[in-house]
Design a binder for these strands. Structure first.
Lengths: 231, 231
DNA sequence: TGTACATCAGTGAACGCGCGTTCACTGATGTAC
DNA sequence: TGTACATCAGTGAACGCGCGTTCACTGATGTAC
């Protein structure tokens, strides 16, 4: 049942040599398995094959290790999103699609990073202004900025569109893991749903003139009173 | 800082009278604050003003209480989604919009329920086949079924569309709480973004014929090899 | 090349804590007669 | 209407556990001379 105990590799040397990296790796795995709240410093140390006190040579405390995972996650995320964006030509719609895929791939391939980054109430680090160039926000905002210049005349708010793509990707990414989802929609492939959804979202947004019959009814009621801002 | 201790109301009677309800209420609040993993039975008992052993008269264990919160959450969710769906006339696009709003409202107004229901790896209860009629899956699937009959000729897969609306709503709902999100997009109102996004998603999906120039490029590569199923 | 010593990166035992859960108990309630 | 008793819904003390963190320590490494 439980995998072979990969924990104590019985180091040959007294010094680990690469403990910081080992701890980050263990934390990624543990956070992927049990979430940030379920994550345990002692367990991370155990996986790295060191005593529970050893991590304190490299991190101030438990939250410090989580913060490091979070930081690296955002860095990697930015790298991937940036790559997806830069590998695209002048076609903005395609660029957004690729970023969406990069997003989904990241969430699937790096669940530990993803959970550390997007767990609700994550106080540990909010790297909104990392000096490192390639963070995800900057990439997204850059992408939006570039895209906006080409299309603004249309009245389309591409910043909002980008936010929507992001949220859509996040929703698909987090929902994909849920067992009941698989049960309720066994025949839907998340990647394809994302792909076509982003397509449709972009197409629908660019087509926002008078489209069919269906879509030109009065703006829905009920949107609460929260739509202030942007003075 | 910490709110006035609403915990020990100093019951007048030895019996609580309504402890089960009080515990569910406390659990909802605590799960909203700290998530399902951070939630603590002892704390729930404290809030209800009883000893830590008292909950065991009403629930088998900690997970049992969480499961109850989860169950009630799904029931309420189904009620709301069902209400949104039934209050709409024949316009399917509008129906989906309303369901999207109901979704977002629920997530915002009932964070405790929402977290209990959608926390990743929620083993406690997967009420896929509740005998109670009004659960959310049934509502959604019904909605899809009804909607599908009207539009299938178009080649539009409305089940997928519904899944996409769901995922989009989930993404916006969960992202809305994140502080960095507010920082990165201070001027975007989630409810409006959802509203217009669902609009665009539906419009774009129904318009899936040859639209503009942008959208008819070859199907994206990279979609991995996971698109099997439905033999 | 060799030696003394500072610094670094671990150990392992211990602490205090809060948790989930159990247990024998007791106060309150309801029901049979 | 009153009494005996079963049942119910709490108490509170205790347990074992695993956690985060501290502490004095020690083995390994690197550097000055």
């Amino acid at each position: 049942m439980t995998k072979p105990p990969l924990r104590t590799k019985k180091r040959d040397s007294y010094h680990h040599g690469n403990l910081k990296e080992a701890l980050v790796g263990a934390a990624r795995a543990l956070i992927a398995e049990r979430g940030t709240t379920g994550f345990t410093l002692v367990d991370a140390a155990r996986r790295a094959g060191v005593s529970p006190a050893a991590p304190y040579r490299h991190f101030p405390d438990r939250d410090g290790l989580i913060a490091e995972v979070c930081r690296r996650g955002f860095a990697e995320f930015g790298r991937r999103l940036g790559g997806a964006w830069r590998n695209t030509g002048a076609d903005r719609a395609e660029a957004f699609r690729r970023m969406g895929h990069a997003y989904l791939d990241f969430a699937r391939e790096e669940p530990g990073y993803y959970a550390a980054m997007f767990t609700a109430g994550a106080q540990w680090t909010v790297p909104t202004k990392e000096p490192e160039g390639g963070d995800a926000f900057a990439t997204l905002v850059d992408a939006i900025g570039v895209a906006t210049d080409g299309k603004r005349g249309n009245g389309v708010d591409l910043r909002r569109l980008a936010f929507q793509v992001w949220a859509f990707s996040h929703g698909i990414a987090t929902l994909s893991g849920a067992p009941w989802l698989v049960h309720a929609f066994p025949d839907i492939d998340p990647a394809m749903a994302l792909d076509e959804g982003v397509d449709a979202l972009i197409r629908g947004t660019l087509h926002s003139g008078p489209p069919k019959e269906d879509a030109k009814r009065p703006r829905s009621r009920k949107t609460a009173g929260a739509n202030a801002s942007r003075t």
